[in-house]
Design a binder for these strands. Structure first.
Lengths: 335, 335
DNA sequence: TGGGTTAATTGAAACGTTATAAATCGGGCG
DNA sequence: CGCCCGATTTATAACGTTTCAATTAACCCA
């Protein structure tokens, strides 16, 4: 890493003048073209380092059509606590030093989720795409597959054609959570689900239902609200059930906010955690270590998820076959 | 917004052929150059809309040197809960539709904070910069001012030259928090500060100290840890003080995690919130509405902060005088 | 010796845009 | 009638890179 800073920003032409080779040769040498003599390559790279040459992104992009940009579609409405931070940290960590930069594009919640994708494709704004909150028949996945555009989804789909994805085993999480509550002697377990359109909702439901049925206990999936409902609405729904006869004595919470809401509903109705009901929650941030009473948690490592998605996208852009680009994170727990 | 999608992506040349004008004329017409006849401008813009013309970013960038990119330096270590999400949402909200895209660059915590800034300047990776966790004599501010590069800092500095910033009145927050605790009859108030290098640490300290002195009560600034210390370390420090003689009966907490730690320390030593001690915390996310026992909070609207910073940066890039580009958010509370 | 072959290098074009300087075209004026 | 002027338009170069096709140099073998 040479630090000999000149007045002017060095370009290929600077290097060409400096080394006596033609611009084309310099370009090839730096690209590692095998047709270039080894000695030439050395001379050129030496000069490049000495002058601190960095290829101009705009020029390269104009010429090659590659943007050196990866776009991340980020939900700007509600988030699981710390999701954005951890996820983004994982992504930037992997991409640092690769020459790719990450742009964040808002994924308008109620709006047309295809619009930003269309813009990116049409105006060639990125070389690859990452997104979250994948739906079972996600129109973005369909569009991107048709366009043969590299992407990695956070969450699986139900399309038959394979595509790269990274997911968390929410079915296993639900089973685990139920099993833990059953082991504590709980007989009626409550669950708030995300919206039906998301694939992971089906995984959660399936894992939950088969676990409670196998254990032969009661269950209820809270009606009328989803994880994306306003917290007050969720709180009200939970509250209502606590006042009704035969309230649940166990809660499986997919988000941290829901866990706090459940805890608050319990407390506010005079119940005691660990006595009248137990809660198991999925957590993405370490904040729950500090909550009293302590809630049992299952960890989802979103930083690792971000890393995995970024790495996978790089491999996809390098042309690896899609079938193999999948990764399912298992729940981490010491329950 | 015409939707007549052709096989090829339309360029200025396409429009030139279509309208019969020269490429240069078309470019000027779209740029709104006053030398172009009104009728011509109409013809050209009509054609542009019809064909769905979008200027190529790479070409424009290569030619003009402007990147149409705004970079955000984001701390990837610790965050205040929900900070990243809200902040980013505010920024993207303002920038949507302006043609600017946001890239996220990790601001390595212990590392050289100048390195990413240098890279951005040197390789011309952005037209403007946003960053957080500003230091009293922040080297990034110095460098950017020297280079006359547009930026907005989250937090003030102590440089004499003015520069654009958006800040939260942490001094007012500290006074408010102390006043509230004093009103509750608390006589010994504890505070965990961020690292000394940050400007807002000085504001917090000043507000805190002058408020406790004016009220004539005891105080302690927890030694040996900062807000960036590992939560376990902060927890241990708080715990130690609770076991020592004459423990604090009031806590001013700058972050949500610290508030939970203080609450946990209180609970774990058999104390009761509202009886043995009170807590006032700054919150950036609505999560605290759900914590039991309820903690008194003062709100910092980070989404509005992100919006303000993005808007201010746009104005700075449009050449507005720097002296006027400042905004101080006041604490929002119903204490 | 000379044609054929390989290895290495190079000139030139192109990507799509903007900016500089020059060209065109009616009129208006002396 | 010729000249100049303002209003429009245009040809052209340039931004920095990659790549196609062509050139040069060196070498081998008949």
């Amino acid at each position: 890493m040479g630090d000999e800073i000149q007045g002017e920003k060095p370009t290929l032409r600077t290097l060409a003048q400096e080394t006596g080779f033609a611009v084309a040769t310099v370009s090839r040498a730096l690209a590692g073209d095998p047709r270039i003599a080894a000695t030439t390559r050395e001379t050129v790279t030496a000069a490049a380092n000495r002058l601190g040459y960095v290829p101009d992104r705009a020029a390269r992009r104009l010429r090659t059509g590659r943007t050196q940009v990866i776009s991340l579609l980020l939900n700007t409405q509600h988030e699981f606590l710390g999701f954005t931070h951890e996820f983004l940290a994982g992504i930037t960590e992997v991409l640092a030093g690769t020459g790719y930069s990450v742009t964040v594009v808002p994924d308008s919640p109620g709006q047309d989720r295809l619009a930003p994708v269309r813009t990116i494709l049409r105006n060639n704004l990125a070389d690859g795409l990452l997104f979250t909150r994948t739906e079972a028949f996600d129109p973005r996945v369909r569009l991107l597959m048709e366009a043969d555009f590299p992407f990695v989804s956070h969450g699986r789909t139900e399309f038959t054609t394979p595509h790269p994805w990274v997911d968390y085993d929410n079915e296993a999480f639900a089973r685990l959570a139920v099993a833990h509550l059953v082991a504590k002697g709980r007989r009626r377990i409550s669950l708030v689900l995300p919206g039906d359109q998301f694939t992971f909702t089906q995984h959660l439901r399936y894992g939950f239902l088969s676990a409670v049925r196998a254990a032969g206990i009661d269950h209820e999936i809270v009606a009328g609200v989803t994880l994306d409902s306003p917290p007050t609405a969720i709180g009200a729904a939970l509250m209502q059930r606590r006042h009704a006869p035969n309230p649940p004595d166990g809660y499986v919470c997919v988000g941290e906010v829901t866990a706090l809401l459940a805890l608050a509903a319990l407390t506010d109705t005079g119940g005691m955690h660990g006595v009248d009901a137990d809660i198991v929650a999925k957590r993405a941030s370490p904040i729950f270590d500090n909550i009293r009473p302590r809630i049992d948690t299952v960890f989802e490592d979103l930083r690792a998820t971000g890393r995995a998605m970024a790495e996978m996208l790089l491999r996809r852009m390098n042309g690896e076959p899609q079938e193999r680009l999948n990764r399912l994170f298992m729940p981490e727990t010491d329950l």
